[in-house]
């Protein structure tokens, strides 16, 4: 009886110690909900949500200071995912922040670029390769399509072009018929059947 009590309390003590120590040593520094929200955002760092980047927006959302529908690059899919994560109702994108567009990347017209570096300074993700009086080139794989490089360009040599579709980017197109259309279609086909 005594050994049983001793063994159990010893076990409890050891596990308690392990728990206590691991809580201290494996402490998560930031709020995990911020990380989860940040993981859902598209990381364009475009600032269209009025925050400096995706992480500040995630932090504001975690604090309840920002709404979930302020991210045009993410679009409805991101809003739905955020609604699910935060346990709130999904809503349409706030048009004040922009409209959902097809993904694009910046492309520099080499005939016109004067190597001024203003676009490089504007790029939030270091996706432009170039230096003063050297050719500037967009690294398409790094470009998030945030368009922040376009306004600073003094010679208007940057254009947004649709992302080249390859096997990794291709996805099934959305069905062309809307739910309303298919609903009106169904009775007609039923009438035609007999």
């Amino acid at each position: 009886m005594l050994t049983a009590i001793l063994a159990i309390s010893l076990l409890a003590l050891v596990f308690g110690l392990i728990l206590g120590l691991s809580a201290r040593y494996f402490q998560v520094e930031s709020d995990p909900i911020v990380d989860k929200i940040d993981a859902l955002l598209p990381q364009t760092q475009c600032g269209q949500c009025t925050f400096a980047g995706c992480r500040p927006y995630a932090e504001a959302m975690a604090k309840g200071e920002a709404d979930i529908n302020q991210c045009p690059p993410g679009g409805q899919a991101t809003i739905d995912a955020l609604a699910e994560l935060l346990g709130v109702d999904s809503k349409p994108l706030n048009a004040e922040h922009g409209e959902e567009e097809e993904p694009t990347v910046a492309y520099i017209d080499e005939e016109v670029c004067i190597g001024c570096t203003l676009c490089i300074q504007a790029c939030p993700v270091d996706a432009i390769l170039g230096a003063a009086k050297q050719m500037h080139t967009v690294i398409a794989d790094e470009c998030t399509g945030c368009k922040l490089c376009i306004p600073p360009c003094p010679v208007e040599c940057i254009d947004m072009v649709p992302i080249k579709q390859d096997i990794e980017l291709w996805k099934w197109p959305y069905p062309e018929t809307t739910p309303e259309a298919s609903r009106t279609d169904t009775p007609q086909t039923q009438e035609a059947m007999p």
Binding site: E110, E111, V112, C113, I114, G115, C116, L129, G130, A131, K133, Q134, M135, T137
Partner: peptide, 10 residues
């Protein structure tokens, strides 16, 4: 970064 020269004359 390895650069290329400009094409246009600024």
């Amino acid at each position: 970064e390895i650069y290329r020269p400009l094409i246009a004359d600024p």
